[in-house]
Amino acid sequence: MPRTPAALALCLALAAVAVPLSASPAAADSSACTHHFSGPQICIRLEGRGARNSVTGIWTNPPEEIASRPVSLLRNGRHVDTATAVRSGKALTHTWPSGDTGSGTELCVRFRGSQRLACQTTH
Protein backbone atom coordinates (compact mmCIF):
# COMPACT_ATOMS: atom_id res chain seq x y z
CA MET A 1 0.00 0.00 0.00
CA PRO A 2 1.44 3.45 -0.91
CA ARG A 3 2.64 5.43 2.06
CA THR A 4 3.14 8.91 0.55
CA PRO A 5 0.79 11.20 -1.33
CA ALA A 6 3.10 11.04 -4.38
CA ALA A 7 3.07 7.22 -4.39
CA LEU A 8 -0.71 7.20 -3.99
CA ALA A 9 -1.09 9.63 -6.91
CA LEU A 10 1.18 7.43 -9.07
CA CYS A 11 -0.86 4.31 -8.24
CA LEU A 12 -4.12 6.09 -9.08
CA ALA A 13 -2.70 7.36 -12.39
CA LEU A 14 -1.49 3.87 -13.35
CA ALA A 15 -4.86 2.37 -12.42
CA ALA A 16 -6.67 4.95 -14.57
CA VAL A 17 -4.57 3.88 -17.57
CA ALA A 18 -4.89 0.14 -16.88
CA VAL A 19 -8.70 0.07 -16.66
CA PRO A 20 -9.35 1.26 -20.26
CA LEU A 21 -6.66 -1.09 -21.57
CA SER A 22 -8.32 -4.08 -19.92
CA ALA A 23 -11.92 -3.07 -20.69
CA SER A 24 -13.93 -4.76 -23.41
CA PRO A 25 -13.72 -3.25 -26.92
CA ALA A 26 -15.57 -0.02 -27.52
CA ALA A 27 -18.85 0.02 -29.35
CA ALA A 28 -18.50 -0.49 -33.08
CA ASP A 29 -19.66 3.01 -34.00
CA SER A 30 -18.80 4.08 -37.52
CA SER A 31 -19.94 6.40 -40.27
CA ALA A 32 -19.48 6.97 -43.99
CA CYS A 33 -20.46 9.75 -46.38
CA THR A 34 -20.72 10.21 -50.12
CA HIS A 35 -17.63 11.87 -51.53
CA HIS A 36 -19.06 14.34 -54.02
CA PHE A 37 -18.14 18.01 -53.99
CA SER A 38 -21.50 19.17 -55.34
CA GLY A 39 -25.05 18.09 -54.71
CA PRO A 40 -26.40 16.22 -51.69
CA GLN A 41 -23.88 15.08 -49.08
CA ILE A 42 -25.43 11.90 -47.69
CA CYS A 43 -24.04 10.05 -44.65
CA ILE A 44 -24.83 6.89 -42.70
CA ARG A 45 -23.91 6.32 -39.07
CA LEU A 46 -23.98 2.97 -37.27
CA GLU A 47 -24.01 2.95 -33.49
CA GLY A 48 -23.88 -0.23 -31.50
CA ARG A 49 -21.90 -3.28 -30.57
CA GLY A 50 -21.25 -6.29 -32.76
CA ALA A 51 -24.21 -7.19 -34.96
CA ARG A 52 -26.66 -4.96 -33.06
CA ASN A 53 -26.76 -1.38 -34.34
CA SER A 54 -28.96 1.65 -34.76
CA VAL A 55 -28.72 3.29 -38.19
CA THR A 56 -28.89 7.02 -38.84
CA GLY A 57 -29.33 8.59 -42.27
CA ILE A 58 -28.01 12.15 -42.56
CA TRP A 59 -28.25 14.73 -45.34
CA THR A 60 -25.67 17.28 -44.26
CA ASN A 61 -26.33 20.09 -46.76
CA PRO A 62 -30.02 20.24 -47.69
CA PRO A 63 -31.42 23.50 -49.03
CA GLU A 64 -32.61 25.72 -46.16
CA GLU A 65 -36.25 25.52 -47.24
CA ILE A 66 -36.41 21.72 -46.84
CA ALA A 67 -37.68 20.75 -43.38
CA SER A 68 -38.15 17.03 -44.02
CA ARG A 69 -37.55 14.40 -46.68
CA PRO A 70 -38.18 10.65 -47.01
CA VAL A 71 -35.07 8.51 -46.43
CA SER A 72 -34.79 4.81 -47.26
CA LEU A 73 -32.77 2.12 -45.52
CA LEU A 74 -31.34 -0.69 -47.67
CA ARG A 75 -29.80 -3.92 -46.43
CA ASN A 76 -27.52 -5.73 -48.87
CA GLY A 77 -29.17 -3.80 -51.72
CA ARG A 78 -32.76 -4.55 -50.69
CA HIS A 79 -35.22 -1.95 -49.44
CA VAL A 80 -35.97 -2.38 -45.72
CA ASP A 81 -37.88 0.75 -44.71
CA THR A 82 -38.65 4.36 -45.62
CA ALA A 83 -39.06 7.00 -42.92
CA THR A 84 -39.17 10.78 -42.72
CA ALA A 85 -35.93 12.55 -41.89
CA VAL A 86 -36.47 15.91 -40.20
CA ARG A 87 -34.26 18.94 -39.86
CA SER A 88 -31.93 19.00 -36.88
CA GLY A 89 -29.83 22.14 -37.12
CA LYS A 90 -28.36 22.30 -40.62
CA ALA A 91 -28.97 18.63 -41.47
CA LEU A 92 -31.87 16.26 -42.09
CA THR A 93 -31.65 13.10 -39.97
CA HIS A 94 -33.55 9.96 -39.12
CA THR A 95 -32.44 7.15 -36.79
CA TRP A 96 -33.80 3.64 -36.99
CA PRO A 97 -33.77 1.98 -33.56
CA SER A 98 -31.15 -0.54 -32.58
CA GLY A 99 -31.70 -3.98 -34.06
CA ASP A 100 -29.91 -7.07 -35.30
CA THR A 101 -28.10 -5.82 -38.39
CA GLY A 102 -25.92 -8.93 -38.68
CA SER A 103 -22.22 -9.13 -39.38
CA GLY A 104 -20.80 -8.38 -42.82
CA THR A 105 -24.06 -6.67 -43.79
CA GLU A 106 -24.00 -3.67 -46.13
CA LEU A 107 -26.42 -1.01 -44.87
CA CYS A 108 -27.17 2.01 -47.06
CA VAL A 109 -29.34 5.13 -46.89
CA ARG A 110 -30.81 7.12 -49.78
CA PHE A 111 -32.79 10.35 -49.57
CA ARG A 112 -35.69 10.92 -51.97
CA GLY A 113 -34.57 13.09 -54.85
CA SER A 114 -30.98 11.80 -54.79
CA GLN A 115 -29.50 8.72 -56.38
CA ARG A 116 -26.48 8.88 -54.06
CA LEU A 117 -26.10 6.17 -51.45
CA ALA A 118 -24.08 6.28 -48.27
CA CYS A 119 -23.15 2.74 -47.23
CA GLN A 120 -21.41 1.08 -44.29
CA THR A 121 -20.68 -2.59 -43.69
CA THR A 122 -21.22 -4.07 -40.23
CA HIS A 123 -18.45 -6.06 -38.53
Rank of each mutant, 00 (worst) to 15 (best):
M1A: 15
P2W: 02
P2G: 07
P5W: 06
P5K: 09
P5C: 14
A6E: 09
A6C: 03
L8S: 14
L8D: 11
L12A: 15
L12G: 12
L14T: 02
L14R: 04
A16R: 04
V19L: 14
P20E: 03
P20L: 08
L21Q: 12
L21C: 15
S22A: 15
S22Q: 10
A23R: 03
P25A: 08
A26V: 15
A26T: 11
A26E: 08
A27C: 13
A28C: 15
D29L: 13
S30P: 00
S30D: 11
S31N: 15
A32L: 02
A32Q: 05
C33M: 08
C33R: 06
H35T: 15
H36Q: 11
H36A: 14
F37G: 09
F37N: 07
F37H: 06
S38Y: 10
S38Q: 08
S38K: 08
G39D: 04
P40L: 08
C43I: 06
I44Q: 02
R45E: 13
E47G: 14
G48M: 06
G48V: 04
G48D: 03
R49V: 08
R49Q: 12
G50W: 06
A51V: 09
R52E: 05
R52W: 10
R52P: 00
S54W: 05
S54T: 07
T56Q: 14
T56D: 10
G57S: 07
G57P: 01
I58L: 08
W59P: 01
W59F: 07
T60E: 11
N61V: 02
P62D: 00
P62I: 00
P62N: 01
P63T: 03
P63N: 06
E64K: 14
E64V: 15
I66N: 01
I66Y: 00
S68W: 07
R69Q: 13
P70Q: 10
V71R: 01
S72H: 01
L74S: 15
L74I: 11
R75L: 13
G77I: 01
G77E: 01
R78W: 12
R78D: 10
V80A: 05
D81F: 04
D81A: 13
T84N: 07
A85E: 01
A85L: 08
S88Q: 07
K90Y: 10
A91P: 04
L92V: 02
T93N: 09
H94N: 10
H94M: 12
H94F: 15
W96M: 09
P97E: 05
G99T: 08
D100V: 12
D100A: 15
D100E: 12
S103T: 14
E106H: 03
L107T: 03
C108S: 14
C108V: 05
V109P: 03
R110E: 06
R110D: 03
R112S: 15
G113S: 07
G113F: 05
R116A: 15
R116P: 07
A118N: 04
Q120L: 13
Q120N: 07
T121R: 15
H123D: 11
